[in-house]
Design a protein around this nucleic acid. Structure first.
Length: 155
DNA sequence: GCCAACGTTGGC
DNA sequence: GCCAACGTTGGC
């Protein structure tokens, strides 16, 4: 069982959107490093749903991987914002997974809090210039973020 | 809105 | 294969 952090702009697709749909395809990834992480995912993996470009940005909820990786259909849709003319049907470049909403976090854990926690100093999302939209999360980081969500934030 | 970080593209 | 130019991400 692995853990991941997945970024989304809440104006585009938020944790609330996912809760309403319950299951959604995580499509549109067009970065090779992120795609390679998608390929490693397995059903049941834990997901930290991260809101980027938000006020505040941070871990907004929990989800889980609900399907094995499969070709991302949007890469073949001419006119779609994520259409990739170089991707071939017989050898798709991009993949997606289905994700399922999980129990709500007690509260949003803001990026500033993650950065202020020495236990998370190695966490990818707190590193400067960390733009990758899909990141691996260690078991201890996962536990720590869940613990923070249960605790009262420091002021 | 600014801009640092960093991935991608394309000329050479 | 190098690297400058360009585009995107995302915090602030």
């Amino acid at each position: 069982m692995a853990y991941w952090l997945m970024k989304s702009e809440p104006d585009v697709f938020s944790i609330e959107h996912l809760r309403r749909k319950n299951v959604a395809g995580w499509d549109g990834v067009r970065n090779y490093q992120a795609r390679n992480f998608l390929r490693e995912m397995a059903v049941g993996d834990g997901l930290l749903f991260y809101h980027s470009g938000a006020e505040p940005s941070g871990v907004a909820g929990l989800a889980e991987v609900a399907s094995a990786p499969s070709p991302d259909p949007t890469q073949f849709v001419r006119g779609h914002a994520r259409f990739d003319p170089r991707s071939k049907r017989e050898d798709p470049t991009w993949v997606q997974v289905e994700v399922r909403a999980k129990a709500k976090l007690a509260r949003l854990v803001a990026l500033a809090e993650l950065k202020a926690n020495p236990a998370l100093a190695q966490m990818r999302v707190v590193q400067q210039g960390s733009r990758l939209s899909i990141q691996p999360v260690s078991a201890s980081e996962w536990q720590e973020v869940l613990r923070m969500a249960r605790a009262t934030p420091k002021k």
